[in-house]
Amino acid sequence: MPKTTEEILPEFSKVVGKVLEQDALQLKYETTAREVKDWDSLRHIEIVLAVEKHFKIKFNFAELQKFKNIGQMCDNIAAKLAKAG
């Protein structure tokens, strides 16, 4: 069954938390990368790759440039998972 953004958020938080080594990381829909400690450009690469691996999806370059917050990334993941069935 396709997942909703709300279902994806905690999973997403877990993946990001693993990369950033912050076990208790809880991201909200409105959270932006700027607000998360240690989320810099290099870590962003690791995060994107880890998220892609976890959800078995792939973002394109334009998508990566457009995400304004965590929620938009999760919306995109939800849409991709729904499409993949």
């Binding site: 932006t32 990368a33 700027r34 607000e35 989320w39 810099d40 450009s41 962003h44």
Partner: peptide
């Protein structure tokens, strides 16, 4: 006299 200052902001990409 022109000085080049910077826009503020925090975090990634700032």
């Amino acid at each position: 006299v022109l000085g080049v200052a910077a826009r503020g902001g925090v975090g990634l990409g700032a």
